[in-house]
Design a binder for these strands. Structure first.
Lengths: 211, 211
DNA sequence: ACCCATTTCAAACAAGTGTTTAAATACGCC
DNA sequence: GGCGTATTTAAACACTTGTTTGAAATGGGT
């Protein structure tokens, strides 16, 4: 199983470096040195640096998407059985909570969350799209649920607010629990669960504000 | 005045390419070709590529910071004269509105807004800090005002929510008016002023949510 | 023990990077 | 007009980039 070992060592190293230093700023030489594999191993096992990025993203994002989709569908399903509209708070939680809790799910997952938190504002369209095309279906599902939950909002306004929420999330994801304004005069940042609770309150209030 | 011409042509070209392609992904050769100046002109006039980035950011961010600081101080000052606490909505608007309206203030300013919208999640610490150190004072000022406006919120929660707002803003800035989820089944994005209004409502509701 | 496909390895490839150099040109001022 | 500083220029610098190559090593199956 030397093959899988090498492949995974590359994936783990790439996840760390792509997230912390950026995709273009990570050289294959730095990566293969960290992963303790030969320089040519990346092209042998993945074909190219671009294909490696896709593998890094898919490895974790596909499972995460399944979790989110299942949770959202459950919320919608249960509402349908009750004969009521799904709750905006339940829908939002089904999308936000698994995403942020994913950080603590396994070693390296925190780097992955950092990576996709940064992907949305990535200038390189190749990198951005690689992540976008995987995440779009989940957003579609959430949007459809929210349309039912908040029928008083126009479609355009709802979409705009959903984008605000995605922006807030990606900021939280790319920041970890620490403050970008790390200044001694500022208070200490919140713990993980308190942060999720605050994010839920903030996003829900913004979403439900009168139009 | 050939010197200023060259300097400004470099600054304009750099602003456009740094914003759209990213700082590290922009080569001096591509930049000098676009600006129609000699390759060595960048190092002659600015010293290095890093110093050029700083010049690009400072050229617009220093004036923008003055506008924002003045507006925030005016809000606080007027409240002080009334003997009341400043309004959270006035403070927020004093920070958000000039920032987003800056996009239409002059040619190239839209690229600049894109650039600093992306800076916050920039993996390269050099780039990130170059922008952060200039923006921090304005955030400090806003935070101090909001402390007075919303005394019922604990300091840690207020800071967290201010970060959410900054995340939302930087997302809007890095997206322009167009949707990252540009899909024909999604509704058309909002116009500039409607977007600002929605952002204000969203951020204010999230900020004032019960703790 | 042998074979054969899989994997590893050091070396080299062509192309692109930011920066420096020294000569050529331009331009304001006496 | 001509001196002297400021600017522009083409060329070269040393270095890094992703990728390819062909030989060496590995390891499971019969």
């Amino acid at each position: 199983m030397a093959q899988l070992d090498t492949k995974n060592r590359i994936l783990n190293g790439a996840e760390q470096l792509f997230a912390r230093e950026g995709f273009r700023n990570t050289s294959l030489r730095a990566l293969t040195r960290l992963a303790e594999v030969n320089l040519a191993a990346v092209n042998y096992h993945f074909g190219s640096k671009d294909a490696l990025l896709q593998a890094v993203i898919e490895r974790r994002l596909l499972p995460l998407n399944e979790i989110r989709a299942k949770k959202i569908e459950t919320v919608i399903e249960q509402a349908r059985q009750r004969g009521t509209a799904p709750g905006a708070d339940d829908l939002l939680r089904a999308f936000i909570e698994p995403t942020l809790e994913f950080r603590n799910s396994s070693p390296g997952a925190d780097d992955f969350i950092l990576l996709i938190g940064r992907s949305l504002s990535e200038p390189d369209a190749t990198v951005r799209n690689c992540f976008l095309k995987l995440v779009l279906p989940a957003v579609h599902l959430l949007f459809a649920g929210l349309r039912e939950a908040l029928p008083q909002l126009s479609s355009a306004v709802l979409l705009t607010r959903l984008q605000f929420i995605i922006g807030t999330m990606s900021h939280v994801m790319s920041m970890g629990t620490l403050s970008p304004l790390n200044d001694p005069t500022f208070p200490q940042p919140l713990e993980q669960q308190a942060l999720i609770d605050q994010l839920m309150k903030y996003a829900l209030a913004g979403l439900e504000a009168p139009e």
